[in-house]
Design a binder for these strands. Structure first.
Length: 578
RNA sequence: GCGCCCGUAGCUCAGUUGGAUAGAGCGUCGGGCUUCGAACCCGCAGGUCGCAGGUUCAAGUCCUGCCGGGCGCACCA
């Protein structure tokens, strides 16, 4: 089952109904339309709805509601799947799923465990996901953190739908910026005009001096030797910070070693030249990117003989393509969006469709503290680093908040809110739901309440609408993971988890799961305060049988399981207690 | 000037790839712990989806033009 037992079952029933209608001549159906099931906004409109009748109206040349009635009639011969089929104007078909089918979702979750929500859509396809890729000229800041969170979640999402994912960090350890950084370290008292400032530069300078005094490093290093040393120092820091943020990479790809030293740059450019995509003009070497839809042609080697950044990127993407990936995904800062057309031109020059490369843009993070903007100036080296944020608010909170907005919209990140363990902080809301269920099972164990497997549970006792409202999102989870992965939008999962947690909390408050510890508690139910609200009284009036306890425990365990799986994809922990 | 992204409740944002009467959190106001975790729950109020056209049976979503904001437009990275 790729999108869950309920959707799969209903979809195949719908498909069958359409084929029947075609066979009998009621519908022409020259082509079978794509079948889509929506979750209606209102529960009164059923569990699932399809707009297929409206979409067919033009090709069938009939009124949507007539088509809907034909399909609905066929569907009504499947009472084992659909309890109720309604046609609503102008041509919606609203479906109410048979109750038994919902309970099969719980069995499915229990059987699949950590595998629940995974599918095989991307099976056999390999994707290279490149992200963060910050220059090794300084520590990672919050913006990089957001890119890391998005990249990590995306890697997990794509893996969940069956892709074979390789994550990669591209190290820009060649070129001007690195030389500038090295020069800033060497001449720390008298830094170059546009050089790097910041305390970490002074630290590196001191460390370099100390090491040379101690004889660990020889004195009189050349500029490129200083650069190499400083880069590796900074890269170690970056790796440490990412590890603390719980983000890992399969490969660290060095511009200097893997592209220049290996000859990949000249090789890739040579290939382009052979194909006629390079030309010389004004003493520079140009890539004819306009041949592939770019605004203007781009320089790859400057008059002074130095390669531009694009030259490296051409070689890098050639290398990626040569490694045989079906899809390349790059995660970039949104300020680099103008770079997309030329990189897609590169991909096309190498004979691939331009959408072989997809770019996810990540917008800036506005760092706040108690509503006040924290000012940052890269020039002066005043940056709040990722390390500082993770140390202050924790990796889970930082990650979750980074993923609460779509990647390409700006994000306000308030350090005080992120630290707060309150309702304002969505990560705790979701984690609390998980911990709460864990706690429930601890208490159940203490009191000797048996926990049964799904197959042993009598589902008929879960007769309230609240039960179904908690199960339905569980059934949607696989479809959500699939859609979220395909759209490259992990924030959808973040929203989903908040919604699921909300339903769990509401249910938990309203209904009792375990029998009271003491007999006398049952006698206290007459002592209710007059002000108690309707739901309170309902809850207290409910008679709790062992069968009901067993069913609810089972339901909760499966909700917990889905929350855990979802948090896992986001890279956020699911604590047993908080 | 050209290109890309964005204008949705007081604030911050979702909106299932074009579907039904546009949602959530925060904030305001008002309620709720003798119980299994109150890091929680329930309720009230809050909208001309920037504006104007167009396509469609159907537009917050697509096309055009304005208005307003962000970001790009290097032989920088």
């Amino acid at each position: 089952m790729s999108v869950g037992v309920v959707r799969e079952t209903v979809l195949s029933t719908l498909r069958e109904a359409l084929e029947d209608a075609r066979a009998s001549g009621d519908l022409k159906l020259t082509t079978l339309p794509a079948l889509v099931l929506d979750v209606p906004k209102k529960t009164a409109w059923g569990d699932l709805a399809t707009t297929v009748a409206m979409n067919l109206a033009a090709s069938e040349r009939r009124a949507p509601h007539e088509i809907a009635e034909i399909i609905a009639g066929r569907l009504r011969s499947h009472p084992e799947v659909l309890e109720r089929i309604d046609v609503a104007p102008p041509g919606y078909i609203n479906l109410t799923v048979k109750r038994d089918l919902w309970f099969r979702v719980l069995a499915e979750i229990e059987a699949q465990g950590e595998q629940y929500g995974r599918s095989t859509l991307g099976l056999g396809k390999r994707v290279l996901l490149e992200f963060v890729s910050a220059n090794p000229t300084g520590p990672l800041h919050v913006g990089h953190g957001r890119g890391a969170a998005v990249g990590g979640a995306l890697a997990n999402l794509l893996q969940a739908i069956g892709y074979e994912v390789t994550t990669e960090y591209y190290i820009n350890d060649a070129g001007r910026q690195v030389r500038l950084m090295a020069a800033s370290v060497t001449a720390v008292q008298n830094p170059p005009e546009d050089g790097y400032k910041g305390a970490y530069i002074a630290d590196l300078a001191k460390q370099l001096h100390d090491r040379q005094q101690a004889g660990d490093l020889r004195s009189g290093l050349s500029e490129s030797e200083v650069a190499e040393w400083a880069c590796s120092q900074l890269l170690q820091g970056i790796k440490t910070d990412l590890r603390a943020f719980n983000i890992s990479f399969d490969r660290w790809f060095s511009e200097q070693k893997d592209l220049f030293d290996s000859g990949a740059v000249s090789q890739a450019l040579g290939w382009l030249k052979e194909k006629g995509y390079l030309f010389e003009q004004d003493g520079a070497l140009w890539f004819k990117s306009t041949a592939f839809g770019d605004d203007k042609d781009r320089v790859v080697r400057k008059q002074d003989g130095e390669y531009t950044y694009l030259a490296s990127d051409i070689a890098y993407h050639r290398n990626k393509l040569d490694r045989g990936y079906d899809l390349l995904i790059n995660i970039w800062g949104a300020d680099h969006h103008g770079y997309i057309p030329r990189m897609q031109a590169v991909v096309q020059a190498f004979g691939c469709p331009k959408d072989r490369l997809k770019v996810v843009l990540v917008q800036i993070v506005n760092l706040l503290r108690g509503g006040q903007r924290v000012t940052m100036s890269k020039r002066a080296g005043e940056m709040i680093t990722l390390r500082e944020v993770v140390e202050e608010v924790g990796a889970d909170a930082a990650k979750f908040i980074f993923l609460t907005r779509r990647a390409d919209s700006q994000l306000d990140f308030d350090l005080e809110v992120a630290k707060q363990q309150s309702a304002e902080n969505p990560v705790y809301y979701v984690q609390y739901a998980h911990a709460r269920v864990a706690s429930l099972f601890r208490v159940a164990a203490e009191r000797g309440v048996p926990v049964q497997r799904t197959s042993k549970v009598d589902w008929s006792v879960l007769s309230s609408p609240d039960d179904l409202e908690l199960i339905k999102p569980l059934a949607e989870y696989p479809a959500l993971v699939e859609a979220s992965a395909q759209a490259l939008e992990p924030h959808r999962l973040t929203y989903y988890l908040q919604e699921l947690a909300a339903r769990l909390h509401a249910y938990y408050y309203k209904h009792r799961i375990l029998p009271p510890a003491l007999e006398q508690e049952l006698d206290n139910k007459d002592n209710l305060k007059a002000s108690a609200q309707e739901t309170d009284r309902e809850r207290k009036r409910e008679t709790l049988t062992p069968a009901l306890t067993a069913a609810r425990l089972c339901l909760f365990r499966n909700v917990q399981s889905v929350i855990r799986n979802g948090l896992g994809i986001l890279g956020v922990s699911a604590p047993e207690r908080m």
